[in-house]
Every structure is written in C-alpha cells, then in structure tokens.
C-alpha cells in the first residue's frame, strides 16, 4: 500500500482532523466525565488531584472492576447476570470458612473460583439450552448463591490466615514514592486480559456477533452455544475472583456482604458505554465506569459535609444521562 497520501499530510493536520469512530464515543464521554470530576475535585479540595488518591480509588474498587469486567461479557451478548453480588458474598464466606477449617490458602482460593465458575456455567447452560430468560435464570442464581452463603455461616467470619493477610497488607512500591496493592494488580490484569480476549480472539468477536444478532451468528456458523455458556462461566469466575478481592479487602467472610452490588456493577458497565441490548461496549469503558463511581465516593469523603447517600443520587443521575446519550448516539446517523 502506498504512503504518498500520508506523507503529504502533516502530523498536526492528521491530529487536528482526527475524529474518533462513533463506537468509541460513549467511552470517550465517560473518560471525559472522569477527568472532569478529578479536575473539579483538584480545584475544590486540597490533595484531591494527588496520584495516590487515584490509586486509592483503584484499590477501594478493585473487586467492583473485576465484577464489571465479567458482567461486560454477558451484557455484550445481550444478556444480564444478576447473581454476581451474591456470588461475591458466597466467595467471601467460602474463603473464610475453608481457611477457618485450616485449608491451605491456595486450595481455598481454588475452591472459591471453581464454585463461582460452576454456578455461572450452570446458569449459562440453562439460558442457552432451555431458552430461559437470563434475567430469571440469574435471579435464581442470586437467591441460590445467597442461600448457600447463609447455609455455610450466618455470622461474620474473620480471616486470620497469614498468607491472606500478607497479600492484603502488601504494598507494591511505584516510582515517585507512590505505592499500590495486589488487589489493583489483579484488577488491572483482569481488564487487560479481558480486553485482549474481546478484541483479538474468535471467542471475543463471537461475543459481539451474538450481541449484534444471535440468529445471524448462528447462520454464519459461529460457535454460539459455546460462547453463550462461556460468557456466564466467565462472569461467574470474575464474580468469584471479585469475591476473593473483597475478602482480602475486608478480611472477613459474611453472608450480608455485597448486597445489591450486582446493581452497582451493572450501573458501572452502562456508564462505561456498554449497550444493555448487546453488541457494543468495551471492558475499558466498564473500568472507567467503576472509577467514575469510585471518584464520586471520594468526592463525598473529601467534602465531609455531604451525606454518603449523595453517591446514589449522583450515580442515578449519571446513569440516566448516559443512557440518554447512548440512545441519541446510536440513533444518530442512519
């Protein structure tokens, strides 16, 4: 391919005339909102714009990022997974209980991850092969996982295991005197791996194809069954992983953990620009969605006079605004 055209146009010219494809627009808008909030915070409150504040936001919401990543897979196919909050609670309790019983930490973690993935797989099988509405199937999963949690223990179990505590308290030094935690590393790794899978593998592209038109995907000879069950398994796995991070964050397992967290995760995914009808969206967007959520909380912490309920109000307004933006953006050119 010739480069004559590229040579005659200066770099500045290209930057100036560059307009991002409309499919990136929602993510860009979300990112702008995120930057804007940090900017406003930096002006209003001393120390807000400090990088360590940002790293804290990441640390405090690491589990939510992982949850939102898994949920993004499901929502991209046009489905929904309501069970993730309960799976987080189940995971914390399984981890705490098995550790209490003296299991080695690695085995406890493995058990948690297998339990979550298994539950997700079962829901996926029901949804695909019995053609049950994802809403209903995962609602059943929500109750089931929460029920199992109560069955294992109704009281809060503290985690005293040395390995867990080490991981939870370890700080990883970063250049410039900043530090971060393993929770953040796990969360960001999950985002990177998921982004690669969605963008560059047949599995990932099939996820988008199913969201665009499931019957077309079927007629194109794609492996619809595998992928549809797969996304629920991935969501289950991510919920379990998120549960482990949550257990590390609070160092306890409790059946009342993470009540309603599935809704926070869904809100983050939608704010991140993913269409609930499927086929459009990026995990990076979901991560930024979580960060927006986290930043609002930080805002309120810094202010000190605002009630924490303002988080909910702000998220509600943002959600509404983003859904409207998406509606207008997707209806626009045609």
């Amino acid at each position: 391919m010739s480069t004559t055209v590229a040579e005659s146009v200066t770099l500045w010219e290209r930057v100036r005339t560059y307009s991002p494809p409309s499919r990136f627009l929602p993510v860009i808008v979300t990112f702008a909102v995120f930057l804007g909030m940090f900017g406003v915070g930096g002006v209003r409150y001393e120390g807000f714009a400090h990088p360590q504040v940002f790293l804290h936001v990441l640390h405090d919401n690491a589990f939510l990022i992982v949850l939102a990543v898994g949920l993004t897979f499901v929502i991209l196919t046009g489905g929904i997974d309501l069970s993730v909050g309960s799976v987080v609670a189940m995971s914390t309790v399984i981890a705490a209980k098995t550790l209490e019983l003296g299991w080695p930490p690695a085995l406890a973690m493995l058990t948690v991850l297998i339990a979550g993935t298994l539950l997700g797989t079962i829901m996926g099988l029901l949804i695909h092969y019995l053609d049950i509405q994802p809403f209903i199937a995962t609602l059943a999963g929500l109750f089931l996982a929460r029920g199992i949690t109560y069955l294992i223990s109704v009281r809060s179990i503290p985690i005293t295991d040395e390995t867990f505590r080490e991981i939870a308290y370890a700080s990883i030094p970063l250049p410039g005197g900043h530090y971060t935690t393993w929770l953040v590393v796990v969360a960001l790794s999950t985002v990177l791996i998921a982004a690669y899978v969605l963008a560059r593998t047949r599995f990932g592209r099939t996820v988008y194809a199913i969201g665009g038109s499931e019957s077309s995907a079927m007629l194109m000879g794609l492996r619809v069954a595998l992928v549809k069950v797969g996304v629920y398994a991935i969501s289950g796995f991510c919920a379990a992983l998120g549960g482990l991070l949550f257990a590390l964050y609070l160092l306890s397992g409790y059946s009342l953990h993470a009540v309603g967290m599935e809704l926070e995760a869904i809100a983050a995914v939608v704010i991140g620009g993913t269409l609930l009808t499927g086929g459009r969206g990026y995990v990076v967007g979901s991560m930024i969605g979580v960060l927006v959520y986290g930043t609002i909380q930080t805002f309120i912490n810094f202010d000190g006079t605002l009630s924490s309920w303002w988080t909910r109000i702000a998220i509600g307004v943002l959600l509404l605004v983003f859904v409207v933006i998406q509606r207008v953006a997707t209806r626009g050119p045609r």
Binding site: R23, G211, G212, S213, S216, A217, M220, G279, R280
Partner: peptide, 8 residues
C-alpha cells in the same frame, strides 16, 4: 434478510 452482524 441480511444475516450479518451490524455492529462489527
């Protein structure tokens, strides 16, 4: 009816 995926 076109059996393709509009979003890709």
């Amino acid at each position: 009816e076109i059996n393709l995926v509009p979003n890709l």
